[in-house]
Lab assay of single mutants.
Amino acid sequence: MEVRTIKVFTTVDNINLHTQVVDMSMTYGQQFGPTYLDGADVTKIKPHNSHEGKTFYVLPNDDTLRVEAFEYYHTTDPSFLGRYMSALNHTKKWKYPQVNGLTSIKWADNNCYLATALLTLQQIELKFNPPALQDAYYRARAGEAANFCALILAYCNKTVGELGDVRETMSYLFQHANLDSCKRVLNVVCKTCGQQQTTLKGVEAVMYMGTLSYEQFKKGVQIPCTCGKQATKYLVQQESPFVMMSAPPAQYELKHGTFTCASEYTGNYQCGHYKHITSKETLYCIDGALLTKSSEYKGPITDVFYKENSYTTTIK
């Protein structure tokens, strides 16, 4: 009895394709271990004539594949690729409408935090270190965002349907971005203890939790000093293409032309909904596939993004 075979390709990165001759009487799992086709788990399936010449994702289970996976995804987590594939199996079914010149995501599976993050990423200057993220990001900007969303979920250790947080998501993504040249110098002034300067680099240099107003941050924000008295913390120097200011959701007025974009969060910790506000020729609110415009805006804002380049204080 002759062994019926077909020729397929296996890959971990969709760049390096490895030619395989597979036995049609055995499952993919018996031949390769966990195997995925377009995100779908085909591990328990036997090869079919229609699979001839198709590319299958496999887990990096030998040295060659491990090197290829690390170079593309910059992670050695053995569960990463499987999590990416199972997320992709959902995100490829989502709709990605162009809204006001940006790629958004039609609401499904509690994905409003991903839509808000995706919209924000198209408006701030950011370059990702893992080629996987950078490639998928370019495709997302062009309207094909399924891979990018699935990668975000995998890097953030999230599953489809789980509630997510924009600030946490951005923080994970910033860790995989090139923020080497970003720098922030802060000064804390206390009447009792004097003053202390701190220099922050990388992710810490672009994120701040405690106030939404970048102007206020430049002037000074009140913080408790270690001595128990009130101290003032203010920005001395900022070198970065953008800054992200966050605070627990509270009524906040966004003035046209003073910011790049913002995240609105309605609801409580267990259950809520994100919308995205962007400042173009007027203010726009993007909620999944829905767009509304207004000249002014007041609502429960939790993150505001500002364009920056270089700032030095005039406070002496």
Rank of each mutant, 00 (worst) to 15 (best):
N14L: 07
A289V: 09
E204F: 07
Q237S: 14
P34I: 15
Y284L: 10
K46I: 09
L119V: 05
E308P: 09
T169Y: 00
V243R: 00
F80D: 04
C182T: 05
S50C: 15
M170E: 02
D62M: 10
I223W: 08
L254H: 01
T199G: 04
L59W: 15
C285K: 06
L291M: 07
H74W: 07
V206W: 01
A247K: 04
A146F: 06
Q216I: 07
G272S: 01
G39L: 08
K183R: 11
K7Q: 12
I223A: 12
F9S: 11
Y137V: 07
L81V: 13
K93I: 07
V185M: 06
V203I: 14
D135P: 02
T11V: 06
K298L: 11
F80R: 03
L200K: 13
M245Q: 00
T198G: 05
L88S: 05
S246G: 02
A247V: 05
M209P: 03
S310E: 09
Y72V: 09
Q237H: 13
A69K: 05
C190Y: 01
Q237W: 10
K298D: 08
T76I: 11
T169M: 10
C112F: 03
S240R: 00
S263H: 12
L65Y: 13
L37K: 11
G288T: 00
K183W: 05
T312W: 08
D165T: 02
T10S: 12
Q216E: 12
K316L: 10
M170F: 09
N49L: 14
T116E: 03
T199Q: 09
N61E: 15
S86E: 15
P47R: 05
E168G: 06
A145R: 03
Q251V: 11
L163F: 10
Y113L: 04
T314E: 07
L151P: 02
Y214A: 02
F32E: 06
F305M: 06
Q31P: 06
G202H: 05
H18Y: 12
T11D: 05
R141I: 09
G82Y: 06
H273R: 00
S171P: 00
Y137L: 12
P60Q: 08
P60F: 06
K183L: 14
H74N: 07
Q30E: 12
D38R: 11
R139S: 13
A87V: 06
A150E: 04
V22L: 15
G164F: 02
I223C: 13
R4Y: 11
Y28I: 06
I45Y: 13
A177W: 02
S104Y: 04
G33A: 05
M209F: 15
N129W: 06
Y284D: 07
D77R: 05
F259T: 00
A40R: 10
S213Q: 05
A154L: 02
H276Y: 06
C225R: 01
T76M: 15
E125R: 07
C271T: 08
N147W: 08
I152V: 11
N187M: 11
L102K: 04
L151W: 03
R167G: 04
A136P: 03
G220S: 05
S25W: 14
L17H: 14
K191Q: 15
T198S: 12
H90I: 12
G29M: 12
Y36L: 06
F174S: 02
K54P: 04
P78Q: 14
F80V: 04
G267R: 04
V243I: 10
V188P: 02
T43I: 07
K46E: 13
F32P: 03
F305I: 12
K44Q: 15
K93M: 07
F148N: 01
D180K: 12
V42H: 14
A117T: 08
V188E: 09
I223M: 12
K158L: 04
A142R: 11
L200S: 12
Y234H: 08
A136R: 03
Y138F: 10
K54M: 13
L235Y: 01
K280Y: 08
L235D: 01
G82S: 14
M244P: 00
D165G: 05
K106T: 14
Y84C: 04
T258I: 04
P300I: 15
T116G: 06
V8Q: 05
H51S: 07
S246Q: 00
G53E: 14
L283T: 05
C271K: 10
V58S: 08
L235F: 01
N147G: 09
D109M: 10
G288A: 02
Y172T: 15
P97Y: 05
N157D: 11
S294T: 14
K7G: 13
F32A: 08
Y306P: 00
A69I: 10
C112I: 02
V185P: 01
K307G: 09
Q216K: 10
V8I: 13
K316M: 07
V22F: 07
L153E: 01
C261Q: 00
Q230H: 09
D23V: 14
L37N: 12
T266K: 11
A247G: 06
S25K: 08
F174Y: 06
I315L: 10
R184C: 04
K293L: 10
L81G: 07
G288E: 02
Y137S: 08
A117K: 04
S25C: 14
P60T: 09
V21P: 11
A132H: 03
F259A: 01
Q122R: 02
S86P: 05
S213P: 00
R141E: 06
V206L: 06
T159Q: 15
L153Y: 11
F174N: 00
K7D: 12
T27S: 07
I277K: 00
A205T: 04
K95I: 13
R139F: 08
T312Y: 09
V206E: 00
F174A: 03
E144D: 13
T91M: 04
S25G: 08
A146W: 09
L290T: 10
L200D: 12
T10C: 13
T76C: 13
R184E: 03
K158E: 02
H256G: 08
P78W: 08
Q134A: 14
H18L: 07
M170V: 07
T226E: 14
D77I: 05
K92M: 14
P34A: 07
A117Y: 03
P300E: 14
F242N: 03
Q216V: 09
L126K: 04
L179M: 07
P34F: 11
G210H: 02
G210A: 03
D109S: 10
H51F: 06
Q196P: 02
S181Q: 15
T226R: 14
G220T: 02
E264P: 00
Y72D: 10
A289Q: 10
T5N: 09
L81H: 12
P248S: 09
K183H: 09
K54F: 14
R4L: 11
T312D: 15
G143R: 03
Q238D: 01
A145I: 03
V236A: 09
K255M: 09
A247S: 09
Y172D: 09
Q270R: 12
Y252H: 10
Q30T: 10
C261F: 01
H256V: 14
L173N: 01
G210Q: 02
L119F: 02
D77W: 03
L119I: 03
A108S: 10
R141V: 12
T192Y: 10
F305Q: 01
S310P: 09
E2H: 10
Y284M: 10
K280E: 08
S213E: 07
Y138P: 06
D63N: 12
T313L: 11
G210P: 04
I152E: 01
Y252F: 14
Q98A: 07
D303V: 01
P300D: 15
A40S: 12
V304T: 02
T55L: 08
T103Y: 11
K183Y: 08
P47D: 04
Q195Y: 11
I6V: 10
T19I: 14
M207C: 14
L118V: 08
N16Q: 07
T64P: 13
G164L: 00
V206F: 02
R139H: 09
A69C: 15
L59D: 07
A146S: 12
C149W: 02
G164R: 03
A136N: 11
T232I: 12
Q251E: 13
C261E: 04
K92C: 08
Q216L: 10
Q20Y: 11
T116A: 15
S25A: 12
P60K: 08
K219I: 11
Y234N: 07
S181H: 14
T232R: 11
E125F: 04
T292S: 14
S294V: 15
C112A: 03
T11E: 06
F128Y: 09
C225S: 00
N111H: 03
V67C: 09
R141Q: 10
D13E: 06
I277Y: 04
S79T: 08
G82L: 10
S246R: 01
A117L: 07
Q98C: 09
V8N: 05
E308M: 13
I105Q: 04
P34G: 10
G82K: 07
Y36I: 05
E144G: 09
P241V: 00
K293V: 14
Q175N: 08
I315G: 08
K316E: 09
G272Y: 01
A40K: 14
G202D: 06
C225W: 01
G257S: 06
L163P: 07
K54S: 11
Y234E: 05
T159C: 11
